[in-house]
Amino acid sequence: MINKVVSGAEEAIRDISDGSTIMLGGFGLCGIPENCINALVSKKVSDLTCISNNAGVDDFGIGLMLKQRQVKKMISSYVGENAEFERQLLSGELEVELIPQGTLATRCLAAGYGMPAIFTPAGVGTEVAEGKEIRNFNGKDYLMEFAFDADFAIVKAWKGDTAGNLIFRSTSRNFNPVMAMAGKITIAEVEELVEAGTLDPDYIHTPGIYVHRIFQGKNYEKRIEQRTVRKR
């Protein structure tokens, strides 16, 4: 059995350096790798290209890295919850590539499946299509979008084992499994790390072959962005 376990976030991100391209799992603040983000903030690496559906909020998640100006370029689909992000974008301090959410997810999938590109109708006829190859299949136009090429993918899972197998919980799954497949080096932080053999192979979401480093995270805040409830 190949053991993927590292001591913690600091060791897991040890070779992420200035200029690295990193993917970060999560949707909004749901399922984000809190421990690794905090370690990147402490390490103060800069000039990062971050691929993540959202950019956190001003004081949590990727927002913390933006505040310290560690991010050179952000590739996301929706960034509306972060005032500092919008300010850096409108002032030209931050390079931003906004791409459709399905395109983002599927470009991760393509990388993990070993396919160089995908064809999607999303963005045809819009500014997203500028400079991209268009192919017509069965009378409909599709954009060619390339698989992502990321140095690191950092994901958060619910449970994982020492062999790197991952199980996600509820909608905190979101982008995590496809990003886990897409990194040259994939780092997984999990709420509960167990011995290999404990998890039922039939219920693994991400096979350990995609995961290079795994550790049990601590002090998860799991902040809720929009707390909505109904009366009993």
Partner: peptide, 12 residues
Amino acid sequence: VKGMGGAMDLVA
């Protein structure tokens, strides 16, 4: 500038 989220995928 908030981004398109999933809207472009949905309408396409």
